[in-house]
Each structure stands twice: as C-alpha cells, then as structure tokens.
C-alpha cells in the first residue's frame, strides 16, 4: 500500500501497523464489510416480500394456499437457521440446475444422478462453466440472499400475520359498510394500518438478521467473521511478511464494536420510524404523542 512497506521486517510501531492493516488480505476484509451491508440491504426487503406473501397466503380463504402459508411459516421457524444454511444452498443450486436441465436439454440421455455425482448438461450449469469469476461470486451471493430471505421471510410472515390480525375488526367492518370489496379493504385499510403493529416485531427481526450475518460463511460468502478468523489466527514467518501470534482476540473485539455500533444506529433509526408511524394512530402511543403536543 505505502511506499515504505517493501520491507516489513525493518518496520516498527505505527509504520508496521499501517502496512499490516493495508495488506491485500486486510483490504479483502474491508470489502467484506461492504458485502455484509449490501447483503443486509437486499435481504431485508426481500425477506419482507417473502413475509408479506407468506402472511397473505396464510390468511387466504383458499384452503390449500392457507395451508401452504402456515406450513411455510411453522416449518422454517421450527428449524435452527444454521441447520438450514448447511444444506439449503446446495439443494437450491441443484434445484435450479435441474429445472434448467429439463428445459434446455430435453434430449440428454445420461442420468442426472450418477452415483453420488450430480451432473446436468453443460448448458444448464449455473453459472456456465466458462463464466468469469465475478459471475460465480455474484451467483453465490444471490443464493445467500435467497436463503436468508426464505428463512427470515418466515419470521417476517409470522409478525405480519399477527399484525394483520391486530388491526381492529371495526376498521375492516367500516370499509365493508362503505361497500369496499375484499381486495380494496385489504390494500386500502388493512395494509396501511398493520405496519404500526408490525414494527416492533420487524425491528427485532432486523436485529436478529444483523446478528445472523456471521453465518454467511456457511453459505460460501466470505464475510467479516471469516476474515477476522483468517487474519487473527497465528501466522508463522515462513508464509507471511507479517508474522504474529494468535490475535483473534483483537479482531473479534473490533467485530464486537462494529456490531454494537450497527445495532445502536439501527435502534435510533427504528425508534424514529416508530414515532412517525404512531402519529395519528388510535393507539396508546398515538394518544401519548397527541397529548404531548397539545
């Protein structure tokens, strides 16, 4: 990084540290922070979408759809996320490739399952065998986002389901009295009002999501925890210019600070949103705000 970094053995103190902290490997770690933030930014709305779909399905008057929604919510909530992550990505990847295989290679005469091997025709591989590395990484990232969204979507569905039930019946009845159809009262009355009931649950879910990111390395995405472990482990002089003993303690302390700061910022932002949503609502919180302003 810096010009004086050519001979790390001769360096000391701050200079050594500044060279050490800017090695290519450390830069990978700083990039990983971005990866984690990007994943969170994409996963949160995706999980919300899954959750909304799940909750709507569970409330559906069409029985099979309601069952599907309820089964999705209860099964995925019942399984530890870590157990899910350990096999789900491979399963998802194989499922995609199997579907593509059926579509793209209908004339393929070989078995897909040859003993232990899973083999689809080359055109069906995801990504294609000759794709660039960044395509592979993007695909892996996409699978991770999808897995996270499915898992956390189930929890979000549970929260939203409860929130939809919590909107006072009288509101829906009034909508019906005004002659609104089921669909109209759902979109115009129920959905706008449910958020205030859902927000405490959703904000907790967001906190859980933040703290689930260390599991990303199970999904093949190199996250900050992977790098902290990799960089912190003791290094012998034979393989690096910056040998050091087991420094995981310091790296993990840095992670701790990162997570605590991230949580704190989230708390403050969510608190603001809650206050905004509560405004004008017929709840205790809304009443309190009204009185405080008056």
């Amino acid at each position: 990084m810096f010009s004086f970094c050519t001979d790390p053995d001769a360096l000391e103190g701050v200079k050594w540290l500044s060279c050490y902290l800017t090695t290519g490997k450390h830069q990978s770690m700083y990039w990983a922070v971005g990866t984690v933030l990007l994943l969170l930014a994409i996963t949160a709305p995706a999980a919300l979408l899954f959750g909304f779909g799940g909750a709507t399905a569970a409330r559906s008057r069409f029985r099979p759809l309601a069952w599907f929604g309820k089964i999705y919510i209860s099964i995925v909530r019942g399984v530890p996320d870590i157990a899910f992550f350990l096999f789900f990505v491979i399963a998802l990847d194989q499922a995609f490739e199997w579907v593509r295989h059926q579509v793209k290679c209908p004339d393929w005469d070989q078995e897909i399952w040859q003993g232990n091997d899973f083999r689809v025709c080359p055109e069906a591989k995801l990504p294609l065998g000759n794709a660039a590395q960044w395509v592979h990484e993007t695909y892996g990232f996409f699978l991770a986002v999808l897995t996270f969204a499915i898992v956390f979507g189930a929890f979000a569905a549970n929260v939203l389901y409860g929130a939809m039930q919590a909107v006072p019946r009288a509101q829906i009845e009034t909508a019906e009295a005004y002659g609104m159809t089921h669909r109209q009262s759902f979109w115009r009355i129920l959905v706008p009002q449910m958020w205030v009931y859902a927000l405490p649950g959703l904000s907790n879910l967001w906190m859980v999501l933040i703290k689930a990111t260390p599991l990303l390395f199970l999904l093949g995405v190199e996250d900050i925890v992977y790098w902290a472990r990799e960089l912190g482990g003791s290094k012998t002089a034979q393989f690096t210019d910056y040998p050091h003993p087991d420094w995981r303690m310091w790296y993990f302390a840095a992670l701790l600070v990162f997570y605590l700061a991230f949580t704190r910022v989230s708390e403050i932002v969510l608190d603001k949103i809650m206050r905004r949503l509560t405004k004008g609502q017929a709840t205790m919180g809304g009443e309190k705000q009204r009185k405080a302003a008056a």
């Binding site: 490997k25 055109e123 294609l128 000759n130 990799e230 482990g233 012998t236 034979q238 690096t240 910056y242």
Partner: peptide
Amino acid sequence: AGLASAQTVRMGTEGAYPPYNFINDAG
C-alpha cells in the same frame, strides 16, 4: 470463446492450511 472451447477447470481449495494452501498477504 463459445461453449465448444475448453471449459474452465475450477480448482477448489480451503485456503487455511499452510504450507499446502493458504491466503497470502495479498489476499
């Protein structure tokens, strides 16, 4: 190159077992 050309061979390794394989300072 099209699909007909040589496929890229992807070599899987762990990257945490020196001196067999590890991640160097450059990442």
